[in-house]
Nucleic acid binder design. Structure first.
Lengths: 310, 310
DNA sequence: ATGAATTAGTTGACTTTGTCAACCAATTCG
DNA sequence: CGAATTGGTTGACAAAGTCAACTAATTCAT
């Protein structure tokens, strides 16, 4: 990556941090007239959401609080009869922390008022902004969350409004960005999809959209080539979701469906530069049957026909 | 809006706030081994970026700091020879604050190390994630920034890779969401666009994409109906950009182009529910020439043909 | 099995950060 | 002109956070 691009991103992130520091400050003013400080409210939240099996150290590390500070904070909770400690049976040093009924009530009240405050604030923005906001926040969380926790399950589903356009859009953008392909490629994709939407036999032709945590991350189409030969088209996996087996899942869904629909063979056309896709085809038993150079998408490409007996 | 939708959004925002509170905490640990506290660093930033004409109260309100706290903080800056006060000529109560050379140097060092820290952190994420992150952050800022500051200029441009897919996608999503139209509408849009991409005469047919701060916010197409009659199609304005004259700008570009291209008349087909679009057509002199009910998109609609002598 | 190292948690001493009310002096408003 | 407001300072104080030293239970290495 170029230095200037990284610099620009760093600047954008620092700007956002400054901006959101103020934002969070504004939203947390509601705590001022509650009986809890910000740190207390955060701890209370953790206690309420891991009820029974939270320990002081656990809370300390998740919230990044100093052990000493937390210790005093917890003692004050105990003195206010909001929380109880039970010595851990497994480890004599540890205590298990549970909210008392009073503590749970206090949390419920606090939570409700915080929710109401955010709701009021949110209602001051037009619905379209609200949606944009939530989408953007979710995408930030997803990117920054640890790789383990972001491995939500990839789900395959039937297309919904906007999905077909998305497939065209992402094909156009990604192949232009990664391989420099011209607008003729996007035009070809649009042509294929318009044709598919206009008329397809749902019993023998189908499209799947892969989604991860509600975000579109991939697509694949199976269409009829002849009565006995199925054709796989438009396999796409978002860069952000690569290496998670999305492509394999999509191809396997196609194979399964093609077998069930009574096809005897599957064929597909791809290009030699697409290494990741080829690896999947090879692993599923496809064989390369023909290669032909072409320049349909603005540069010299090696088109390939692959086939598989079902 | 339904209650549950608002609730879900509120929950998402609160989750993000908790999440990002930790994130910011982690990123600010770099300050620990500098000579400045977080509050000091923020004030220093403000001083460096409004050099000469910043006042104590101004900084206090932008950063949300208590006047008393800030007063002491500024005195400590003065004692450390980082900053100077000059009494304001306009207002005897005020002082204008300027960083000394030493102060500017200190800021430069601090800024460089903060930037390096963010860069290191950012480089731990794949480029696709970085891009997603920056995009999402910019979109949050844009939504939450004051309405004045977000009125960047709307620009019209020729389509680029992904744009055509985007037009299809947003038509499909928006009309499904706002009017409950079926997938047949997206199919129609895909058909029109596939046709346009496959073959159009750039001298007499054209597409414009409206963009605001680099984000796509609208589209319009002008195609040949007959040699003397132009047809306007696929006028779309993102909800987030409505009320900013995007639609008018797009229609006017079409009218201008059609006149220059030698057309004598312009026609368009729309539906009665689309009030905002109709207002634009009326204001530009279009006349309603025919209405016809249809159910192409899943519900009873009143299709309308409009015309304008150029 | 045992001594060393680590971990969970506490405590005292301390700094930083932030709040509140009272106050002064210059400015603006009616 | 006097009252209200604004920019800024100060004292007193509370909240938030840091650091090092400590105890007791547990784990690890040999």
């Amino acid at each position: 990556m170029t230095k200037s691009l990284l610099d620009a991103r760093v600047a954008a992130i620092r700007r956002f941090n400054r901006f959101y520091t103020k934002q969070i400050g504004a939203l947390q003013e509601g705590l001022l007239d509650s009986e809890f400080s910000l740190a207390e409210a955060r701890v209370l939240y953790e206690l309420a959401h891991a009820d029974g099996d939270s320990t002081a150290t656990g809370i300390g590390t998740t919230l990044g609080l100093d052990a000493g500070y937390l210790s005093r904070l917890l003692r004050s909770f105990e003195e206010r009869r909001l929380m109880q400690r039970r010595p851990s049976s497994a480890d004599g040093r540890r205590s298990n922390l549970t909210l008392t009924r009073k503590g749970r009530n206090a949390f419920t009240r606090l939570d409700a008022s915080a929710r109401a405050q955010v709701a009021t604030w949110l209602e001051g923005h037009p619905p379209a902004d609200q949606r944009a906001l939530v989408t953007a926040m979710e995408s930030i969380e997803q990117v920054l969350a640890s790789p383990e926790s972001r491995r939500g399950d990839v789900e395959l589903r039937a297309p919904r409004p906007g999905d077909m356009g998305w497939v065209i859009q992402r094909h156009g953008e990604l192949y232009a960005e990664e391989y420099g392909w011209s607008e003729h490629f996007e035009a070809l994709v649009a042509q294929i999809i318009a044709q598919f939407m206009h008329e397809h036999d749902p019993a023998r032709e189908r499209c799947w959209i892969a989604s991860l945590n509600g975000t579109r991350v991939g697509s694949i189409f199976l269409v009829k080539h002849t009565d006995t030969v199925a054709r796989l088209r438009l396999l796409l996996v978002e860069p952000s979701a690569r290496g998670m087996g999305v492509g394999r899942t999509l191809v396997d869904a196609c194979l399964q469906f093609a077998r069930d629909a009574g096809y005897e063979r599957m064929t597909l056309w791809t290009n030699a530069v697409l290494n990741a896709a080829r690896a999947i085809y090879v692993s599923r038993g496809f064989r390369l049957v023909r290669e032909e150079a072409h320049t349909h998408f603005g540069s010299e490409q090696l088109g390939q026909d692959w086939e598989l007996e079902l």
